[in-house]
Design a protein around this nucleic acid. Structure first.
Lengths: 242, 242
DNA sequence: GAGTGGTCTAGACCACTGC
DNA sequence: CAGTGGTCTAGACCACTCG
């Protein structure tokens, strides 16, 4: 017997991708509630259980947040609980506090080979580069260099960065409509160059964590590449394996 | 109205903890199939859907592995697909191959303060310390120092380590009945000391990744502590954020 | 009390595996 | 073909939130 459906996709996954589409198109914005399970079931003409299963998967992927009795909400980087999902550094002595982001520079450039490859844009396409320092209780711990596709982040300036209260992903979300949903990090140990050493107030040549990150929005589209240098004298990068 | 169940726990979670108990007691061993959903439903006197939901959660936590048409199996470190779940280092040039573990030393000692704290055993309790090197295509990339509670790993010797084919967690599982299910890693950048530098064939003082790991078995019981020094000249530590 | 998500059930049918 | 997990449905009821 010939196989009827070589690319069989269950109903709830089709519903899921429809909801995903609606999310990507901005039908509901980060922080807002999406329609109730019952409403979605009617809209997509499936049972509530099937709509539920689609939502379940998206909640497991941190795209949606369920709140019993209230509704289901589009995940947002404005939510303080989401903050440390993408910042895995914690103080050795355990006194966890929110860091302060200090933007240093923000300039325009054209994409080189590496930026072109990681951001999947043309060589020579406009990019924006941001340099900033992250301070914990006043002490510099991380220096970041952030590469962004210029087309998406038009209007991003040092002033915008300095004025904004909240995380940089929160800014991207509210001001540029770009929601970061997933990232890959490549971590290595490197020796501090002169400028980084000065910024982090460590000796030149001392070991630093180099954290290179590619960040993706809906549809696995890369929209940020960054390299962070982490001083791990009083902090460590925390990771959970399971 | 007084709240009826301040510690409300749904049925499927109770079932889950019963299955967990059976797993911890060794009723089914790693790699073996557990009873079918229908059988479990009968055994615990719930509907198949409820048994299913319990299993679903455990599969999501990598405790069980579902295989359509075949059954549900206890997760095992013998499964090669599970190998890189706990070893997050990959070559820069992408040619992923299985590393070779080279045990160097294995000796007995008594737990100091740090071992006592991380392994949750008494100070002075017997521990076993293993030193080994991990080689990728013949080149040393990681040097590990592994601390184990002596009581659990009685009979572990350098010979046992050298003879065994397969990952060390696979050995722990088959020879000592200890299954690792979760770990926390603290990652920092350090300068290579003399012995590590020699083993990894890098210059003394060059930056290395220090990966400290506490590993837990069922019931969140810590059963391993280790520090790995990773040479990241030709490899990086890979992490996914979501 | 109305509306939301969360649980539980029972039953039908589909997809995959292996004998 | 029988046995397994996977999907889908419909309905009842529970837990939580808010007005």
């Amino acid at each position: 017997m010939a196989q009827e459906s070589p690319t069989f996709s269950p109903l709830y996954r089709q519903i899921k991708s429809l909801i995903l589409q609606a999310l990507a198109s901005g039908e509901w914005r980060p922080g807002e509630a999406i329609p109730s399970e019952a409403e979605l079931a009617v809209r997509f003409n499936v049972s509530q259980g099937t709509a539920r299963k689609a939502i379940d998967e998206m909640a497991a992927e941190n795209l949606l947040v369920r709140k019993q009795g209230k509704g289901t909400f589009v995940a947002s980087h404005n939510d303080p609980r989401a903050f440390f999902r993408f910042l895995r550094i914690v103080p050795i002595d355990g006194t966890l506090a929110f860091p302060q982001s200090v933007p240093l520079e923000c300039w325009r450039a054209k994409a080189g080979l590496e930026a072109s490859r990681t951001l999947q844009i043309a060589v020579g396409a406009p990019i924006i580069i941001v340099r900033r320092v992250l301070k914990f209780s006043g002490k510099p711990v991380v220096v970041d260099e952030i590469y962004l596709p210029g087309e998406i982040f038009q209007g991003l300036t040092l002033e915008v960065l300095q004025e904004y209260q909240g995380s940089i992903y929160s800014l991207f979300e509210t001001r540029f409509g770009v929601r970061m949903i997933r990232a890959e990090e490549h971590i290595r140990a490197v020796a501090a160059d002169r400028t980084s050493a000065e910024l982090l107030k460590v000796a030149e040549g001392s070991p630093l964590l180099s954290v290179e990150r590619t960040t993706y929005t809906y549809g696995d589209k890369p929209v940020e590449w960054r390299r962070g240098l982490y001083s791990t004298a009083e902090h460590y990068y925390h990771n959970e394996l399971s």
